[in-house]
Design a protein around this nucleic acid. Structure first.
Lengths: 141, 141
DNA sequence: AACTTAAAGTAGAATAATTCTCTTCTAATA
DNA sequence: TATTAGAAGAGAATTATTCTACTTTAAGTT
């Protein structure tokens, strides 16, 4: 993703464009295994050694707030982030921290039709995500 | 759930039966909105004011390890626990911390058949959970 | 029923992810 | 280029959870 695309994302949301915000968004896109704040900080400090920890956390909050990134639900005690906003699901490794994206439009249709006809009493569905837990048969390339 | 049922769960897993473990399992079952460790500690201390924080955390780990409870995946920074081990999904409120169980065997069948025929390359599925995000139309009774 | 001991519980300190406070800086607009 | 609201920075504070170094206890054995 080009720097200009990232800038446009920020401008479109009415956010000020700062070098820190660009680096952070870039880092989440590059670090494609749903990075933690720490992963992001380590990655950025290679080129920008002076970025403050608090800045990263504040920017992450702002990006989540403005729907440029998402928090990933896990059962671990640190947050992970995802720069892919289009509808997709996650494959969780049952023996490691690895999380991969799973895109499947056919599945999305199936679920949409299922709940459209069935519904859930007293609940208005806004989004459905699958957590698919299991084992990866190949290590990450 | 009777105390004896809880005791049996512990015995079946080869865990020593202690008052602390019984109280903690009881609390998770009673506090049915997927309690945090803090919720559990507060609840238990009403009757057992001296239980140590570390005990609760250690027992929770032991119970998860022995598959008597499960961690619930969230995008918040504290852990939540679930005493229901049978296959079910979760309704997450998009504006509060409320999480409710969603049982649906028809859905489970649908998903099972879908993935049985389709599969996911290089991934062995062990479990599938839906995170259904949305709004509750009624407050909790 | 008492003896033994590995496992469990306790208190409080330690850790680590995240947040807060308050000051300085800067992006965006006039 | 001057203005200023919003952003970044540094480091302290907070808070959920874990660790350490004990003491106690459950449950099998005598």
């Amino acid at each position: 993703m080009k720097i200009n695309e990232i800038k446009n994302k920020l401008v479109d949301k009415g956010l000020k464009v700062t070098p820190q915000r660009i680096s952070i968004l870039e880092a989440i896109i590059k670090l494609n295994n749903h990075p933690t704040a720490e992963n992001i900080i380590d990655y950025i400090r290679k080129n920008q050694p002076n970025i403050a920890t608090a800045t990263v956390y504040k920017v992450l909050d702002a990006l989540v707030e403005n729907e440029l990134i998402r928090k990933v639900k896990t059962d671990r005690d640190f947050m992970r982030y995802d720069a892919i906003m289009e509808n997709h699901h996650h494959l969780y490794c049952s023996v490691s921290d690895r999380i991969e994206d799973y895109h499947d439009d056919e599945l999305n249709d199936l679920l949409e039709k299922y709940f459209e006809s069935k519904g859930i009493p007293d609940f208005k569905i806004e989004d459905i995500k699958l957590q698919i837990i299991g084992r990866f048969m190949k290590s990450k390339k």
